[in-house]
Design a protein around this nucleic acid. Structure first.
Length: 506
RNA sequence: GCCGCGUUGGUCAAUCGGCUAAGACGCCUCCCUUUCACGGAGGAAUGACGGGUUCGACUCCCGUACGUGGUACCA
């Protein structure tokens, strides 16, 4: 029964998408593309209380930015819609009722207060995490304990109720996970999960199963946090008579905090100084959670970094194009253990990708920065500078910091790097150099260097002795491309002015 | 607490019983450059612990420890 591959990424629109979600989407995408299947975006907005406006658009924009766009789903259309669970609300109830009729589920009328009371009682009795399970359901208000007339009456009266799955008292659910192999659970350990909420919305458990079935999903890849509830889903497929169409499962390892203790969470970014969100996200209270995009990351770099977090391609190199990832991707090579997020390595990937960018692309990214500084330069000049400083840029936005002295004379000097060894001879050297520099007819790298070194030799000064001061004069500090390159770039007049000014200051 | 999943250098990780245990990031040294960076050459640093199984265990099994996830009318 080989069906066409259909995988889905099914996030909840509860806020910005963090990199764990991006990676889940990525693995789904790669798998689909590898097998010539479809990648579907489904929005799981069954919890009305947690719904956040704008989150859905954010998710779509993230996928677009990352270059892993869905073939089908919210924002993309398709034959299996609607793709928003809130819009599918009327579809779920019938399945819940089918389960009740078959004896696999039941109606429960307990109020939140009653359930809370039950929990308190059991906690007092020494149970740290009471569940509504096979033992407890015996004395709660549900269609298993209430007379059938009363159940009918309550239902007819429109009394609030939920539908819960009736987990077998003693059974074992075993299933094969593409990443973890055979996994089994004792049904007695899992509670009677709510399937249909009092507001008529399904919970995740009912919704995934129904939607995956209806949308003919063949492979369900999701985070490891879902592993414990997998038996509920497996049972649901069985109870609904859909076993044949059950997707293959793979539970992805979690991305953990770099400093230990738990999975990476939304707040770690601010705490540790790196982004965890794909794009900037403004929370309801107005705080900004920085995104990788705004921080200066290239999407290919982020994707490349993420794909290697929990997956190993089995080849020697680490830089992959999306196409190459698709070629190499193999769900069986996904790790079982969680991986810590390493921002240093993430930056390294970005640096690698920045190096692949053209000077023109770097220039494009720098234009707004210059505009903000009020600096105006010719395009060709900008591009030349970009090519000169590219190798020291980790982010596309790093050009200014590495090249500001090409746009304006240094405002301050690293005197400590010059003064200790400064003397009249050097001062004289620069005075003479300025005179000679004025006579250079072709102001280029080689001519300047020849002039500079020639003078040094004549005066019996080691070139190195005056090269550093020259650098400080031109850019203010111990950084930047080769000195003569700088001089050639900023021009004869500007170079001479800077040298004269600094020479009087040292 | 209970249940699940995991455990190779600081981090990401290769290895599918033969290991003198790859590679990458980071770190250190040297070369290049009398700047920074890039590049090049080296270096330090790893199998949680205890039992089996086996001629042989990092690899298989069992315990323990530790980590991590779940234990909601959240996903």
């Amino acid at each position: 029964m080989t069906r066409p591959v259909r995988v889905r990424f099914a996030p909840s629109p509860t806020g910005g998408l963090h990199i764990g979600g991006v990676r889940t989407a990525l693995f789904n995408y790669l798998y689909a593309k590898k097998l010539g299947g479809k990648f579907i975006l489904r929005i799981e907005d069954t919890d009305q209380t947690r719904f956040v406006k704008g989150a859905e658009e954010y998710i779509i924009e993230t996928l677009k930015w990352c270059g892993i766009e869905p073939d089908e789903g919210v924002g993309y259309g398709g034959e299996y819609g609607p793709y928003r669970q809130s819009e599918r609300k009327p579809m779920y109830r019938q399945y819940a009722e089918q389960l009740v009729e078959a004896g696999y589920a039941y109606y429960a009328f307990d109020t939140p207060e009653e359930i809370e009371a039950m929990r308190e009682r059991l906690k007092a009795g020494g149970n740290p995490a009471p569940q509504y399970n096979w033992a407890v359901r015996e004395y709660m208000k549900n269609s298993l304990t209430l007379p059938s007339d009363e159940v009918k009456a309550r239902l007819a009266a429109g009394e609030p109720h939920v539908v819960r799955i009736k987990m077998p008292r003693k059974d074992e659910v075993k299933f094969h996970d593409l990443i973890r192999g055979w996994v089994s659970f004792q049904t007695a350990q899992v509670d009677d999960k709510v399937l249909l909420k009092a507001d008529g919305m399904p919970t995740y458990h009912l919704a995934v199963v129904v939607d995956d079935y209806l949308m003919e999903i063949t492979h369900a890849f999701r985070g490891e946090e879902w592993l414990p509830s997998a038996p509920v889903h497996i049972l649901l497929y069985k109870y609904l008579g859909w076993e044949e169409k059950m997707p293959e499962f793979a539970h992805l390892p979690l991305i953990l905090k770099p400093d230990g203790n738990g999975k990476l969470s939304k707040r770690d970014g601010d705490r540790l100084g790196f982004p965890v969100f794909s794009l900037d996200w403004h929370t309801a209270d107005g705080t900004l959670q920085t995104g990788f995009r705004e921080r200066g990351f290239l999407p290919q770099a982020l994707i490349n970094f993420l794909v290697l977090l929990g997956w190993n391609p089995g080849v020697a190199h680490e830089i992959f194009s999306l196409d190459e990832m698709i070629q190499l991707f193999d769900i069986a090579r996904v790790h079982q253990a969680g991986a810590k997020f390493d921002f240093e390595k993430c930056k390294w990937f970005n640096h690698q990708y920045v190096q692949m960018q053209s000077a023109s692309a770097l220039a494009d990214a720098t234009v707004p920065v210059l505009a903000a500084k009020g600096v105006q330069v010719e395009r060709a000049y900008l591009e030349h500078i970009c090519s000169l400083v590219k190798e020291r840029c980790t982010f596309m936005s790093d050009v200014w910091d590495n090249a500001f002295f090409f746009f304006e004379a240094p405002k301050e000097y690293d005197f400590d790097a010059v003064r200790p060894k400064w003397n009249d001879t050097k001062k004289t050297f620069f005075t003479s150099f300025v005179e000679r520099a004025k006579t250079i007819s072709t102001w280029d790298n080689a001519s300047i260097e020849a002039c500079f070194k020639g003078l040094a030799e004549e005066m019996g000064i080691k070139v190195g002795e005056v090269q550093m001061p020259m650098r400080i004069m031109l850019c203010g500090g111990k950084f930047g491309p080769p000195v003569f390159e700088i001089a050639a770039t900023i021009g004869q007049k500007e170079s001479i002015e800077r040298i004269e000014k600094a020479n009087s200051l040292f």
